[in-house]
Design a protein around this nucleic acid. Structure first.
Lengths: 233, 233
DNA sequence: TATATTTGTGTATTTTTTACACAAAGAAAT
DNA sequence: ATTTCTTTGTGTAAAAAATACACAAATATA
């Protein structure tokens, strides 16, 4: 008997992992954070940060811990996406993955590879390399989740800087939804939500009329969501 | 060493279970299917049908299998709800649960207890008994999921008979959303979706003008959803 | 000072939503 | 047979929201 196999159970159990799909926005395109795997299986392939669940942590804590260990990111607000359980999805045996996603302000964080990862890097959605495991399916699920969600919840702000202009916000919506929006109607609608605070500052060094900066009124949003309002673009 | 504990691993692993939250509608109220637990822990308490994952099945297949074993229901279309992973949520040790939900036509199925369950029974949402584990939290998550979903996807039809009247459909929407809807506007809106097929039959034995029967045009819905339309009540 | 470009606001038109009014249909009561 | 009670189906006017543009204002550069 292998003396290192010291955790014994009456019935077989699957391994459980948590993965993180982290989205960013560079002002033009949506990007996603991948790590290059250092170890087998799929060594050298790109994959989402993630790893095995410890016995004293929730899957969400696991996702955050692995994200930090492999990319240096911390204090990221993540949300559960879906749990992938198909037998055969991992060559190491029976592994189920609880996937989480997050939208972050790329400039707030600097990423660094560590641990199991050779490197961590942002990829725009139209240049995703071949991914390990069933991660391209997971990515599709994550993209379709944020597409559905952004129309009803103000998650877009999470991807922008603290202060942003309305045209920047519009480019973000267009990048996520994959459609062109009327500039003038977008402007009016987004102001009408009452969730933007107008700042006394304009974007500098642009060779045209300078757009104003705004910030997101998080307090007001939380008040409104407690009352069950609905936001729609 | 306990010779029955024959599944040994290098690292500890959690147990994984799948649970099913099955909703029905009796024409008046939304109901949910519960089983009375036969075994410890929580013997005698009510809980969702569910059980431990086998190594050769997906979590979805597990949920369907357990649902059949404990209630006799089969051929139910289920959808993943959420995965619950908090350490301490199960007194037997580390157990994570992948929860699924479904909306079914109560009249299509007859339920019977079996296996681990002393009995299976429908409960309306305002008379839910104390539940085992963290199942009341799971129920809340399931309710809020269907409330959110019914406004954008035609899931209501799954709860009604093959043929139904518009007032029946309205009562269902009102039961799920918890609001009163204008009868006349509801009628027009639901017809305007183009998803109802009018039948040459009226409800019999009602002491007032008899409402027409309709059926749901599933084919048309599938065509439309492939094109990415949006349904809204 | 003129030019090129993009932002911010206004407005007319169309579409959708909302709030009702009223006739039609069916069974039960008279 | 007629009236009564109740609920369904359709219509419509008013209000609100969405859409499609027009144009002036602002800013760096030529």
């Amino acid at each position: 008997m292998d003396s290192t196999r010291e955790y014994c159970y009456k019935y077989p159990r699957p391994s459980v992992t948590s993965d993180c799909i982290i989205f960013g926005f560079d002002g033009d395109k949506i990007r996603v954070l991948l790590i290059e795997r250092a170890n087998e299986p799929y060594a050298g392939r790109w994959a989402f940060p993630g790893g095995f669940l410890d016995m004293d942590e929730s899957a969400e804590d696991c996702a955050k811990r692995e994200l930090f260990e492999e990319t240096g990111l911390k204090n990221v607000f993540i949300e559960q996406l879906y749990t992938f359980t198909q037998p055969g999805r991992d060559p190491r045996g029976r592994v189920i993955t609880i996937a989480y996603y997050a939208l972050i302000k790329q400039t707030d964080y600097s990423i660094t590879a560590g641990d199991d990862a050779k490197q961590a890097q942002w990829f725009s959605l139209d240049e995703i390399p071949p991914l390990a495991f069933d991660h391209s399916r997971i990515l599709q699920a994550a993209i379709s989740r944020i597409k559905g969600k952004i129309r009803y919840q103000p998650i877009g702000f999470e991807l922008l800087n603290e202060k942003f202009t309305i045209p920047e916000l519009q480019r973000l919506y267009e990048a996520i939804l994959g459609v062109q929006l009327d500039r003038r109607n977008f402007h009016r609608k987004i102001i009408a939500t009452g969730l933007l605070i107008q700042l006394d500052e304009k974007k500098a060094n642009v060779s045209h009329r300078a757009p104003r900066y705004f910030s997101f009124d998080k307090e007001k949003y939380e008040q409104l969501s407690r009352r069950g309002f609905n936001f729609e673009i």
